[in-house]
Design a protein around this nucleic acid. Structure first.
Lengths: 331, 331
DNA sequence: TTGAGTTTCCAAACCGGTTTGCGTAGCTCC
DNA sequence: GGAGCTACGCAAACCGGTTTGGAAACTCAA
């Protein structure tokens, strides 16, 4: 037998579909007797309204979508949990879409979620250029962007303060009397850009020059950092500290240092970024910058909710969530 | 201005909405001229069909839902990636719902996804009892259950072979001549049950008795295992190896052993379960059982797809994905 | 020239709800 | 007893598409 429809409920209850709808939604008064009959029929049939039909008519889905670039990066699941905790009390739920590094999927998810009439959208994109996003979004669905994108011209935006945080971390090393501080993971695009900037800010602020040999190009992976650091050590570059673009790179750097017979943190201090679970598990435990995943999620969720309800109106906002330095063993 | 509707496209193209629909779907022939005009209008308006309306009529959403208990447990994101990779080529997409340990949310997500007419459902539930799930699901939407639930009476099912895997791991320790092997994380419910069973199978198979002092009750956390193992060591229980219910517990156990002055693996060998990222990052690197998250995801996805397309029909199937032992440094 | 067949398009029904307009009944209050 | 409410319930319109039945125009063979 097929799913029961509202007409089935109405028939059993002996009323019209209209009355069933009003009895269930409470948008118009219904007599207690009719209401009781409706509820009995609902229970008997185990009736649940077809949300597609409801949403089509009401243009509300009570759902927001969170489009993330990589669900296996532990940062994003923690953000998602923050989002969920921020919106669920208001009766909204979040569906998560992971583009898994597939550029085409980013655009596909956004347009698809919009065509499914989600009430709001949170996106963090790696691959799709900003201009393309502008073409994808409609103006009606509230949108919050997460990450280091440009100014908030088409949406609200939540981001970390990577540059300031890394500068602070670098000064932590300087205060220890370390002067040969390397940066591993240097690129000028993506999240690495701001972090490298913070490193430079701190050194220049302390009156030190930027030694190109200490700005070590690498990616965000453990293996990449291991290779890059090993190469620098083989070359004989003097190093007494390393600021890494993220925790995985820091773990790779520590591996490379250990392989080369250096002791962390005595010979070389290492600082990561993100504070992933593994940061507290490795030995020595990683000194790192907390990326505030959960908090960023709650901030995104609350902001989006305010836009959906109309509580917040007016120009787009930018909210910065600073990331504190977590001092453990490696620096 | 509001989202363009199919009627807007029809008006600009100078044809009827019917013809627009046929031109876009190709379900009936349309003259080349009409088709060209339709496509021009679509482009001009940047028209995208309202998927709510499409799905309401066609009863297809090209979407499956994956309901997981905890998105911050790295096992599930990896499963999700496997699912996505298995179904996306067939034109389906997956939305992820994390219940975050909230029991009410489990039922809510299932019923909600069904009322949104998803084409299929993959669920892994911690809290909702099996009987309750039976009441929630309708018979029309294909369903795959993941995890150690009972026999597949209402759905297909994909699970690991924890019992066999842990028995194999335990025999690995026995072959090293270790005889005082403990199990940390003992409970008789959930995933722990099968793993404890495998431990017992191996010992009994080798002619050894089960020493109750070596069956150490704990949970799935690092801290819990640390506490439990420390207590056993203080008590003076002789131990030369530990099989842990998961990797986090194994890491906690290693911490406790180190704190007590024992060397891993020389004095005490340790084996985990799951092969989370951190397993390869800690020192000593963890010998563990690969939980095959990605493979389980692809298996779930393929199975579900076959049910959706009707390619697979008939009685519910159970697919077992065995998990191999990954030998690293800790055992 | 006519009838059958084909091509092309449209009007209308439909999916399953919500919302609106209105009729009727019952009640209060002059 | 009639005006004016309120309470209640139903029919019909609507959301935005897809699908179906059939009309109109055109082709082609007999």
């Amino acid at each position: 037998m097929p799913r029961p429809r509202i007409a089935d409920v109405a028939e059993i209850a002996g009323v019209s579909p209209t009355t069933v709808s009003h009895a269930l939604s409470g948008r118009r008064p219904v007599s207690p007797e009719a209401k009781a009959k409706v509820h009995a029929a609902v229970k008997e049939l185990n009736y649940r309204a077809n949300q597609l039909a409801v949403s089509l008519r009401t243009n509300r889905t009570q759902t927001i979508a969170f489009v993330m670039p990589d669900i296996t990066n532990p940062f994003y699941p923690m953000v998602a949990r923050g989002v969920q905790d921020a919106i669920s009390d208001a009766g909204y739920q979040v569906v998560i879409c992971s583009t898994d590094g597939n550029a085409a999927r980013e655009a596909a998810f956004i347009t698809d979620m919009l065509s499914r009439a989600v009430d709001g959208l949170i996106i963090d994109l790696f691959r799709t250029p900003f201009e393309a996003v502008e073409r994808l979004v409609d103006r009606h669905t509230p949108l919050v962007m997460l990450g280091p994108m440009k100014a908030p011209t088409i949406s609200d935006r939540v981001r970390g303060d990577d540059r300031v945080s890394v500068a602070e971390a670098t000064r932590h090393l300087l205060r220890q009397g370390r002067t040969r501080i390397a940066f591993v993971g240097a690129t000028r695009i993506g999240p690495a850009a701001g972090r490298l900037g913070g490193y430079e800010d701190a050194l220049l602020g302390a009156g030190l020059a930027i030694d190109p040999k200490l700005v070590i190009r690498s990616d965000y992976s453990r293996r990449g950092a291991h290779t890059a650091v090993t190469a620098a050590l083989v070359e004989g570059v003097p190093i007494d500290a390393i600021v890494c673009v993220n925790d995985l790179a820091a773990i790779g750097a520590i591996d490379a240092l250990r392989d080369a017979g250096r002791v962390v943190p005595d010979d070389v201090a290492v600082i990561g970024f993100d504070d992933i679970d593994a940061a507290a598990l490795v030995r020595p435990a990683l000194t790192t910058i907390d990326n505030r995943a959960y908090e960023k999620g709650t901030v995104c969720g609350r902001l989006l909710l305010q836009r959906i309800t109309g509580e917040l109106d007016g120009p787009f906002r930018e909210i910065v969530v600073p990331g504190p330095l977590i001092i453990r063993e490696s620096a």
